[in-house]
Simulated scan of single mutants.
Amino acid sequence: MKDAEVMTRVIAILTETRKWVADDAEGDASDDQALDLVGALVNELVSTSFEVPGDASPQDVAAAIGGAMSSPLFKAFAGFAAAFHLLAAEHDQHNPEVTSADVLRDLALRVSSEE
């Protein structure tokens, strides 16, 4: 999958997740919706078949799977990071009183207090 396709899927996930959260607040959402969106991206990015020699050790199998998955997953994470950066830059440009870093710090504090 090309980088532009990954970014398009990431934007779709972020957009749909925002809608999903709004639906959840009204009690109309299910966890399956979010999992389906992310699952579709992962399925499109990651190959479902790996070539491993018949005499491969369990470590060789794990290495083959890890090697095949690392690049596509890195692309997905990079896509989410790039989308966040663009969204944060846009937010910070229009609302300098509450920066994206402030929002993230507040989120981190709320999450850590829930543990």
Rank of each mutant, 00 (worst) to 15 (best):
T99M: 07
Q59V: 15
G54D: 02
I65C: 01
D24A: 04
W20R: 10
L107T: 15
H91A: 13
D32L: 15
G66C: 09
M7G: 03
D23V: 00
D92N: 10
D31H: 01
V21C: 00
D3L: 12
L35S: 08
W20T: 05
G67Q: 07
S112P: 02
N95K: 10
S30R: 04
S100D: 00
P96D: 11
S113R: 15
S47M: 15
A83S: 13
L35Y: 04
E51Y: 10
K75M: 06
N95G: 13
F50W: 03
H85A: 15
L35A: 09
S112A: 13
A63G: 05
D36L: 04
A63W: 14
A34P: 01
L35W: 05
L37C: 02
D60H: 05
L41Q: 00
A29L: 02
L87W: 15
V103W: 05
A12R: 07
K75L: 15
E51H: 12
V111Y: 13
M7R: 15
E90Y: 12
T8N: 13
H91N: 06
F74V: 07
S57Q: 12
V10A: 07
D36R: 01
V6W: 08
A34L: 08
V61D: 07
H94L: 13
E115Y: 14
A22F: 05
D28R: 01
E97T: 09
E97L: 02
E16L: 05
V111C: 13
S113P: 11
W20G: 00
N95S: 14
A68V: 02
R9M: 15
V42R: 02
I13S: 00
E51V: 11
S57P: 09
D31E: 03
E115N: 09
A82V: 10
G79Q: 01
F77Y: 03
H94N: 12
S113Q: 14
S113F: 14
L104I: 05
D106W: 05
Q93R: 09
V10L: 12
S47A: 13
Q93S: 12
H91F: 09
V6D: 08
A83H: 05
H94R: 08
S112I: 14
G39A: 04
A81L: 04
T48D: 07
T8Y: 04
P53S: 12
D102W: 02
P96Y: 14
A108R: 06
F77V: 09
P96T: 15
E51A: 12
D32I: 08
K19D: 09
A34I: 06
